[in-house]
Amino acid sequence: MDEMLNIALPKGRLGDRVYEIFERAGYACPELGDPGRRLVFEAKDSGVRYFFVKPSDVAIYVERGAADIGVAGKDILLEYRPEVYELLDLGVGRCRMCVCGRPGFIDDPSSVLRVATKFVRIARDYYAGLSRSIDIIHLNGSIELAPLLGLSDVIVDIVETGVTLRENGLAPLAEVCGISARLIANRVSCKFKYDAVTELTERLKNVLEDKG
């Protein structure tokens, strides 16, 4: 069995910020200084191997054991519910999952609420918790358009700064949950690479606490 820890990080800005935390925890990878077109980067001294994948795919890599460890947004974990351990809240990539609509929108409980979203499960669970009947409209992008064109009454989406919402005449109406990047681990890796996974988790935790 491969004794290196395989780590899946999300591509892009979030991945860069997360890698900084790993680097400060002692898991630096000099190969990342000159990435070229490579997809896999090894740091033999630290016993880790990094690869960068689409953020929404990190959880799949970890759940299926291609990666022992990964960093995924809480939105992905709530939506797809992969069978993984969630070991740490890394506190980066913070944003909110919100119900958004036209400012002053008043929900009429006598009719079914039309909700457009990319996050079908999160939206369904949220409204089930409120015992509210909804009609889910699954969209893959430009969610803000839906209430503007009368496709839906509200949307459930991630809100970072709120600028896109404001520019489209929308506003957050209710918060569904907070979102941030989470350290996740494959359940089998946590058994067979227990010491390495535990040490990495503790070292990351120490970095986060120092920062805090």
Binding site: E83, R187, V188, K191, F192
Partner: peptide
């Protein structure tokens, strides 16, 4: 139960 190399129980 777990076996080395499997991704799940």
């Amino acid at each position: 139960g777990y076996l080395p190399g499997a991704s799940s129980a």
